[in-house]
């Protein structure tokens, strides 16, 4: 029941995307997200769709994995679509009381929903093709310059990787505790909202206790291995850019330039 959450999940495969330096993938995701927000133009979205489709194809991650990640945003997507549909000023088509359906609203809602879906697919593509370890390595190295202004980059990266690592563990734990309480006759599905909130206590308390226990054990284990943070720490496999990473950067730059060019040429037009 809780296994459907795909955020932060890694899909094992041998593909050019998997083999890229995590920094490239981080920058790539950023570029893609930014490109979605540059403008509202059908041609731009067609280009973005083609780009995304190509990357998915190359990454060898089955498309249904992306779709699974979308389940979690169905509510937000519907919510924002409805708001945009009825609360955007413009040429009305139908009017119900204070709510009116406008052409601008339809346009806005369509772009919003597509944008949201692409946001999720784009970022889950990164996590699906990058192990959490690589991801934080990439972040640490990529943001290393912040060290100069006393930002503890290594510590933040370490916290992130631990947090990511614990997501599946805690999900599994929740699943187990839920089953155990169901076996003792707990009921999470019936009753009003207060009763249901109360019914969560037998899950939340053991979950917190176990999270603290695990954190404690992990801290002890790290201490026992003389962990002392980022200062003077070396890596077994330091990140280094290779030829394919440079190529990937060039493709990304080309994509971004193309998107900006379309934006400039078709400024304000829908198509």
């Amino acid at each position: 029941m809780l296994r459907d959450i795909t955020i932060g999940q890694y899909y094992q495969a041998k593909s050019p995307i998997h083999a890229l330096d995590p920094r490239v993938k981080l920058v790539g995701t950023m570029v893609f997200l930014i490109s979605l927000f540059i403008g509202r133009n059908v041609i731009m979205y067609a280009v973005a769709t083609a780009f995304l489709a190509a990357v998915i194809k190359v990454s060898k991650v089955p498309f249904k994995f992306m779709v699974r990640g979308l389940k979690s945003i169905v509510f937000i997507a519907v919510f924002s679509a409805v708001f945009n549909l009825f609360l955007t000023e413009g040429t009305p088509i139908v009017q119900f009381g204070i709510f009116k359906l406008t052409w601008e609203g339809i346009e806005m809602a369509a772009f919003m929903v597509i944008r949201l879906i692409y946001l999720i697919i784009g970022s889950s593509l990164m996590t699906l093709t990058t192990t959490p370890n690589d991801l934080t390595d990439g972040l640490e190295k990529g943001l290393g310059f912040l060290n100069k202004i006393k930002v503890p980059v290594h510590e933040i990266a370490m916290m992130m990787s631990i947090a990511l690592r614990f997501i599946p563990i805690l999900i599994e734990e929740t699943d187990k505790i839920m089953k155990a309480q169901i076996a003792r006759g707990a009921d999470f599905e019936h009753g009003n909202i207060i009763q249901r909130a109360k019914a969560m206590i037998p899950i939340l308390v053991p979950l917190f206790v176990s999270a603290f226990r695990r954190a404690n054990e992990l801290a002890t284990a790290m201490e026992a291995r003389c962990y002392h943070g980022g200062e003077g720490r070396t890596k077994m496999r330091p990140l280094r850019y290779k030829a394919k990473d440079v190529k990937a950067y060039l493709i990304l730059a080309a994509y971004l330039v193309l998107m900006i060019a379309i934006k400039m040429l078709r400024n304000g037009a829908l198509v």
Binding site: E173, K179, A183, I201
Partner: peptide, 10 residues
């Protein structure tokens, strides 16, 4: 009774 049932005490 699941494995490590003491983890369910609340």
């Amino acid at each position: 009774v699941f494995q490590y049932p003491e983890h369910q005490l609340f």
